[in-house]
Simulated assay, not measured.
Amino acid sequence: MSENASFLPALPWLARPSARTWRCAPAPVEVQGFHAALPDYAPTPLIELPSLAAELGIGRVFVKDESCRLGLPAFKALGASWAVHRTLAERAANGMEAGPLTLVTATDGNHGRAVARTARLLGQQAHVFVPQGVHPQAAAAILAEEAKVTEVPGPYDEAVRLAAEAAAAPDTVLVQDTAWPGYERIPGWIVEGYSTLCTEIDEQLTAEGAVEGPDLVAIPVGVGSLAQAVVAHYRSRLSGWAPALLSVEPQAAACVLESLRLGEPVGVTTGETTMAGLNCGTPSSIAWPYLQGGLDAAVAIADADSARAAGDLAALGVSSGPCGAAPLAGLRAVLTGAGAEKRRTALGLDAVSVVVLLSTEGTAANPHSVIDH
């Protein structure tokens, strides 16, 4: 563990004071323009919730509401659409035949549905592997996009392995949102696609008078792809304000927290959690350098805390399942209870701080809120 890190046994939490000075390259500038040209594109709402700011003793709290993105109840279409666009463009540039492809992926729900939707709209086919524990309604939503669905009697990592094997067949392409050595280009494009979400936040905060941007962004984390995009966006700035970045995971699957604690990417044995889309045991290989370099802190939360946060958001008019509500639950865990003042100081938060919570999916995603970040 780094000498600059702290790990408090009372709460699964780790802080890394040097992260705000880490820098990386930004996402391509043309990503947002690509999304803006899509027929169903519109920026998702950034909703201010003063009651949460008062509860947590900070200046302003905003929720980025991804409950309706490009016609789907989650942010995942941003990554899937850009990655498939780049894949097809590259094949055309290389003189490959333009015949139908089968886009193969593994998913806990929304990524697979986004790939299937993109394939259907572009006249391609999709084959989606779903792990054990995915709610039948999630699989049914993927089938409704005219995709083939294969149910896997094992965890998410096993579904990924089988999808990769299936993608070795002719006229197939693996469109997976986690990376490993030797498979990194398409996951990288998926991460680039998520950058539109961050660009929208900047524009919306400026309109709300928060010109410098957020002081903290809280991100739900599974394999770390969304967190990679957020880190890349805010840590690519050569000057100006750099916010604190907080990752939030289920206690049953805290692979990023454990990897940060050990200083290297490790796999963990996952348990059951209602945050099914965050139930991932291994960080993405391309995400890891960004997580290690740019995350200020990580926290793991209980299912009950996420459920409470989802209910509170619903009462405030924000549709959010357990995964999308995880950032609120994580922020509450950090800013309350034993050791809260030290954690608040570690994140640089005070009574005028601006916080953005990424609510990455709505309750319409499916009853168990699966989103595989």
Results as ranks from 00 to 15, higher is better:
residue 362 G to L: 06
residue 184 E to V: 07
residue 5 A to E: 02
residue 282 T to V: 13
residue 251 Q to M: 12
residue 301 I to C: 02
residue 169 A to C: 03
residue 300 A to D: 10
residue 85 H to A: 14
residue 89 A to N: 02
residue 144 A to L: 03
residue 265 P to I: 02
residue 273 T to S: 10
residue 80 A to K: 01
residue 59 G to Y: 09
residue 38 L to W: 01
residue 236 S to W: 04
residue 334 V to D: 11
residue 188 G to Q: 12
residue 283 P to L: 01
residue 155 P to E: 11
residue 260 L to R: 15
residue 93 A to D: 09
residue 77 A to Y: 04
residue 180 W to G: 00
residue 182 G to A: 06
residue 284 S to Y: 04
residue 366 N to G: 11
residue 209 G to M: 13
residue 81 S to Y: 04
residue 65 D to K: 01
residue 68 C to T: 12
residue 366 N to K: 00
residue 158 E to F: 02
residue 251 Q to C: 09
residue 43 P to M: 10
residue 154 G to P: 01
residue 41 Y to N: 08
residue 118 T to R: 06
residue 210 A to C: 15
residue 293 G to Q: 01
residue 258 E to M: 02
residue 164 A to N: 08
residue 337 G to T: 08
residue 16 R to F: 02
residue 61 V to C: 11
residue 89 A to H: 12
residue 87 T to V: 11
residue 283 P to I: 01
residue 150 T to H: 05
residue 356 V to W: 07
residue 248 V to D: 09
residue 187 P to N: 07
residue 342 K to C: 11
residue 65 D to F: 07
residue 252 A to P: 01
residue 88 L to R: 08
residue 228 Q to L: 07
residue 11 L to H: 10
residue 133 G to V: 00
residue 140 A to L: 11
residue 354 V to K: 07
residue 161 R to N: 07
residue 142 I to N: 05
